[in-house]
Amino acid sequence: MKHTLSVVVENKPGVLTRVTSLFARRGFNIDSLAVGTTEDPTLSRITIVCSAADTPIEQITKQVHKLINVIKVQELDPSESVERELVLFKINAAPERRHEIIEIANVFRAKIVDVGRNSVTIEATGATDKVDAMEDLFRAYGIKEMARTGKIALTRGREG
């Protein structure tokens, strides 16, 4: 089962290594990881998606929490949080197939950010399943290159 952890850390050198090496050492696979600053410039937020059974996720959460530079660790409940991911696809597109691809992009409210002689590059954001669905459709045309940022997430407004 996949879990999303939101980890708020002190914005200091080496902190990301401490967090990620802990996952490796305790035998947890990281599926994706996104890091950036928060509203407070002294703090960063690391969003980690990892797969684990239910008991161990609590174990890794506690272990991460023990790191001196970690301020807060939260497991995000998908129904209680907003999740987004940014993706760039560079897709094989001979001129005669271009409009098909653009149509698909439109359905997903994605943007065309570059057009080459034999390719188009599309930018999209969305929850992970939407990005997965797009990837699936574009595979049929041939994805030359793809870059995904990994998920970022926040809890919904209710709890302030």
Partner: peptide
């Protein structure tokens, strides 16, 4: 040495 000792110290400083 700080890199090496991350998993075997409670904390470390450079």
């Amino acid at each position: 040495i700080t890199g090496i000792t991350v998993p075997i110290t409670k904390h470390n400083y450079l």
